[in-house]
């Protein structure tokens, strides 16, 4: 397996996420929108707290450490 293939898989993964956004738009609500997914992730206080910790970890991992 080559580095090129690994990078192509990353591209496919990113394309998959973008496809979810497009799919939600073109199917007129048959599939969940990004807004809906974000809403579900913060629907309760424990989920909001977990999402905030996760969001902070990503930022700290990428930009501080």
């Amino acid at each position: 397996m080559s580095r090129d293939l690994a990078l192509e898989i990353w591209c496919a993964v990113a394309l998959g996420l973008v496809s979810c956004v497009v799919l939600a738009r073109v199917t007129g609500g048959r599939y969940a929108t990004l807004r809906r997914v974000l809403h579900l992730l913060t629907a309760t206080r424990p989920r909001t707290a977990a999402a905030f910790l996760g969001w902070m970890w990503v930022g700290w991992h990428l930009f501080a450490r």
């Binding site: 496809s19 799919l23 939600a24 199917t27 609500g29 048959r30 969940a32 929108t33 807004r35 809906r36």
Partner: peptide, 8 residues
Amino acid sequence: PAKGRLLA
């Protein structure tokens, strides 16, 4: 927000 399938 409107409900929709989460499978994707």
